[in-house]
Simulated assay, not measured.
Amino acid sequence: MTSSLYVDQTSPVHRLNPVTKLVALLCLIVIVFAIPHWSASALAVLLVIVPVAVISRCGGRLAKYSAALLLPILIVLVLVQGLTFPGGQTPVWQWSFMTVTAEGLLFALTIGARITALVLASILLVLTTHPGDLMSALTQRGMSPKFSYIISSTLQLIPSFQDRANAILLAQQARGLALPRNPLRRAGALLPLLGPLVLGMFTDVDERSTAMEARGFGSTARRTLLIPVPDSAPQRVARWVMPVLAAAAIVVPIVGGLL
Score class of each variant (00 low, 15 high):
residue 120 L to D: 00
residue 243 P to C: 06
residue 152 S to Y: 06
residue 247 A to V: 11
residue 83 L to A: 13
residue 255 V to D: 09
residue 171 A to R: 13
residue 68 A to W: 08
residue 218 G to C: 04
residue 234 P to K: 07
residue 104 G to I: 00
residue 175 R to E: 02
residue 148 S to T: 04
residue 89 Q to I: 08
residue 225 L to N: 04
residue 202 F to P: 01
residue 121 A to W: 02
residue 251 V to F: 11
residue 107 F to V: 05
residue 133 D to Q: 12
residue 219 S to H: 11
residue 45 V to C: 12
residue 88 G to S: 01
residue 121 A to C: 05
residue 100 V to T: 00
residue 255 V to G: 07
residue 70 L to H: 04
residue 168 I to S: 01
residue 58 C to M: 12
residue 218 G to I: 05
residue 48 V to G: 02
residue 244 V to I: 11
residue 71 L to Q: 06
residue 82 G to T: 01
residue 195 G to W: 12
residue 35 I to S: 01
residue 239 R to G: 04
residue 246 A to Y: 00
residue 15 R to G: 01
residue 131 P to E: 00
residue 34 A to I: 03
residue 170 L to F: 07
residue 109 L to T: 12
residue 113 A to S: 14
residue 197 L to C: 06
residue 235 Q to H: 12
residue 149 Y to T: 01
residue 195 G to A: 14
residue 216 G to I: 09
residue 159 P to E: 03
residue 181 R to F: 03
residue 16 L to W: 12
residue 3 S to D: 09
residue 151 I to W: 07
residue 201 M to V: 07
residue 56 S to W: 02
residue 219 S to Q: 13
residue 178 A to H: 15
residue 65 Y to D: 11
residue 78 V to A: 11
residue 192 P to E: 06
residue 79 L to W: 09
residue 187 A to K: 09
residue 182 N to S: 14
residue 39 S to I: 13
residue 108 A to K: 01
residue 240 W to E: 07
residue 68 A to L: 12
residue 205 V to W: 13
residue 199 L to W: 12
residue 213 E to I: 06
residue 132 G to T: 10
residue 238 A to L: 12
residue 111 I to M: 13
residue 108 A to E: 00
residue 61 R to W: 01
residue 254 I to E: 11
residue 254 I to W: 15
residue 202 F to I: 15
residue 180 P to V: 03
residue 63 A to Q: 10
residue 44 A to S: 13
residue 116 T to Q: 04
residue 119 V to S: 03
residue 168 I to E: 01
residue 218 G to R: 14
residue 110 T to N: 15
residue 53 A to W: 00
residue 92 V to K: 06
residue 234 P to V: 03
residue 13 V to H: 05
residue 90 T to K: 10
residue 129 T to C: 08
residue 156 Q to M: 07
residue 124 L to S: 01
residue 99 T to L: 03
residue 196 P to D: 04
residue 212 M to H: 07
residue 65 Y to K: 10
residue 259 L to M: 15
residue 149 Y to L: 08
residue 154 T to L: 13
residue 112 G to P: 04
residue 23 V to M: 06
residue 17 N to A: 04
residue 99 T to S: 08
residue 53 A to S: 15
residue 77 L to W: 04
residue 250 I to R: 12
residue 223 R to I: 02
residue 71 L to R: 15
residue 15 R to F: 02
residue 104 G to W: 00
residue 83 L to G: 01
residue 1 M to R: 14
residue 220 T to L: 12
residue 132 G to F: 04
residue 26 L to K: 10
residue 225 L to V: 05
residue 224 T to M: 11
residue 25 L to S: 06
residue 237 V to P: 07
residue 153 S to T: 11
residue 26 L to D: 02
residue 171 A to G: 11
residue 104 G to K: 02
residue 18 P to A: 03
residue 221 A to C: 09
residue 134 L to R: 00
residue 215 R to H: 07
residue 117 A to S: 15
residue 258 L to R: 15
residue 232 S to Y: 02
residue 167 A to R: 15
residue 18 P to T: 02
residue 8 D to G: 06
residue 32 V to C: 05
residue 53 A to N: 05
residue 232 S to I: 05
residue 206 D to F: 13
residue 65 Y to R: 15
residue 199 L to H: 14
residue 89 Q to F: 07
residue 222 R to C: 06
residue 119 V to E: 03
residue 226 L to I: 08
residue 254 I to T: 09
residue 201 M to D: 04
residue 29 I to K: 11
residue 43 L to D: 03
residue 32 V to T: 14
residue 43 L to N: 03
residue 173 Q to I: 06
residue 65 Y to W: 12
